[in-house]
Computed example of a mutant assay.
Amino acid sequence: MDGFDSTYRGETFRRFDFTDAVFDDTYLTNARFKNVALKGARITGSQVVDVDITGEVERLTVNGVDVTDYVEAELNRRDPERTKMHPRTAPALREAWPIIERRWAETVERARRLEAVDPGLLHERVDDEWSFIETLRHLVFATDAWVRRALLGDPDPWSPLDLPHDDMPDVAGVPRDRTVRPSLAEVLALREDRMATVRDLIDGATEQWLDGHTEPVSEPGYPEGKPFPVRDIFSIIVNEEWHHHVYANRDLAVLEQRSA
């Protein structure tokens, strides 16, 4: 590109640390940012046109106006059940979890209809995000890691179909097969088992138990062997379930259009 010292068009930067870096007189046209932390970022004197942001947004200021509360209020207006997805008490958990189960059941039926048209669509990625099958595999992994390992103390809770998040480094003993293509039925069997485990734990949850911490798992694995607040573990699971459900439906809509 004329006038530039270096050109990195089309390059992928993965697991780079740009903390406190300065991007000046730099083109980021059509750039894609995935799993990035932009805490404290400042964008000034720039063109921000046709930008789409999806993620956890806290204190976002645009031209001097904090739009965070507006965005949150609009999202809650569109979907009032979203306000239930920050449960910190046992009753709140028992209110949130059936919502998650109901919504996933509806989405699975949507996926089954797509599978009847072409099973391959459930393995297809949209904008390089996880496929529907990969999303379900990741949620199995999340439950295995945080509930079966960290909370229940199983040092080796994994299914061969578990799929860790992409930015997690390889951990000995934790499966990560990106090439396998299981059927929807295979993955749903795992999902139903893991969701039943969470349901049973929530049904029996007390505030005293939620106030406690887990016993560290001494064997290596993920997450690391240290005590975690029990309450935080359920927050992690609810957050994973809710957001991946949103992403799954977003991408299913694109696949439905393609199949039509």
Score class of each variant (00 low, 15 high):
residue 3 G to K: 06
residue 3 G to T: 05
residue 5 D to G: 11
residue 16 F to S: 10
residue 19 T to F: 14
residue 23 F to R: 01
residue 27 Y to G: 11
residue 32 R to V: 13
residue 33 F to M: 08
residue 35 N to V: 01
residue 39 K to V: 14
residue 42 R to W: 04
residue 44 T to Y: 13
residue 44 T to G: 09
residue 46 S to Q: 06
residue 49 V to F: 14
residue 51 V to T: 12
residue 53 I to A: 13
residue 61 T to S: 05
residue 65 V to C: 03
residue 65 V to T: 12
residue 66 D to Y: 02
residue 73 A to V: 00
residue 74 E to T: 01
residue 77 R to Q: 07
residue 86 H to I: 04
residue 88 R to I: 04
residue 91 P to C: 15
residue 93 L to P: 02
residue 98 P to M: 12
residue 103 R to G: 08
residue 104 W to L: 12
residue 113 R to C: 02
residue 115 E to K: 05
residue 125 R to I: 01
residue 126 V to W: 11
residue 138 H to P: 08
residue 139 L to W: 08
residue 144 D to C: 00
residue 147 V to E: 00
residue 151 L to Q: 03
residue 157 P to I: 13
residue 177 D to V: 00
residue 178 R to E: 14
residue 179 T to M: 01
residue 189 A to I: 04
residue 190 L to E: 15
residue 194 R to N: 14
residue 196 A to Y: 09
residue 206 T to R: 06
residue 209 W to T: 04
residue 215 E to A: 12
residue 218 S to I: 00
residue 226 K to N: 05
residue 228 F to S: 01
residue 230 V to D: 14
residue 234 F to G: 07
residue 236 I to P: 00
residue 237 I to L: 09
residue 238 V to N: 02
residue 244 H to S: 06
residue 253 A to I: 07
residue 255 L to D: 07
residue 258 R to Y: 02
